[in-house]
Simulated assay, not measured.
Amino acid sequence: MPRIERLLPLLLALLPAAPSLATPAALPAVPVAQTGTATPGPDPRAHWPALDPARQRELRARYAAWRALPESERQRVRRAAADMAALPPAEREALRNRFVALDRLHRDGWRLGPQLGAHYPKLQPLLGYLPEHQRAPMLALLYQLDATQLAQLGVLSQRTPPQERDALRERLLALPPAQRADWLRQSTESR
Results as ranks from 00 to 15, higher is better:
Arg76Asn: 08
Arg79Asp: 15
Val32Lys: 15
Ser157Gly: 07
Leu7Ile: 10
Gln144Gly: 10
Arg78Val: 01
Arg3Ile: 09
Pro114Val: 02
Leu59Cys: 11
Leu21Cys: 09
Glu73Ile: 06
Val155Lys: 07
Leu69Tyr: 03
Pro19Met: 10
Leu51Trp: 10
Pro131Leu: 05
Ile4His: 08
Asp83Trp: 04
Ala118Ser: 10
Asp146Pro: 06
Gln124Thr: 01
Leu139Val: 05
Ala140Glu: 09
Ala68Cys: 02
Asp108Tyr: 00
Asn97Ile: 07
His106Leu: 12
Ser72Ile: 06
Arg96His: 09
Ala86Thr: 00
Arg62Ser: 04
Pro19Ser: 13
Thr160His: 06
Asp146Thr: 00
Arg55Trp: 09
Val77Asn: 05
Ala181Arg: 15
Val155Gly: 02
Arg92Gln: 14
Gln124Ser: 10
Leu145Arg: 01
Gln56Ala: 10
Ala178Ser: 14
Arg104Lys: 12
Arg62Gln: 14
Asp83Pro: 00
Leu153Arg: 03
Leu150Asp: 02
Leu173Asn: 08
Arg74Met: 09
Leu130His: 08
Ser157Trp: 05
Gly154Leu: 05
Ala54His: 12
Glu58His: 14
Lys122Gly: 04
Ala33Trp: 10
Leu95Val: 01
Pro24Thr: 08
Ala18Glu: 06
Arg79Ala: 14
Pro88Ile: 00
Glu91Phe: 01
Leu14Val: 04
Ala101Gly: 06
Gln124Ala: 15
Arg185Tyr: 07
Thr39Asp: 12
Ala17Thr: 04
Pro9Met: 07
Pro40Met: 12
Gln75Glu: 15
Leu123Lys: 02
Arg45Ile: 00
Tyr63Gly: 11
Thr35Arg: 15
Ala101Glu: 07
Arg135Met: 10
Pro31Asp: 11
Thr39Ala: 15
Tyr129Asp: 15
Gln144Ser: 11
Gln34Met: 15
Arg78Asp: 09
Leu112Val: 00
Glu170Lys: 11
Pro24Phe: 07
Glu91Ile: 00
Glu93Gly: 01
Ala174Leu: 09
Ala136Pro: 07
Thr160Met: 04
Asp103Ile: 01
Arg74Gln: 15
Arg62Gly: 09
Pro176Val: 12
Gln158Lys: 13
Trp48His: 03
Arg67Pro: 01
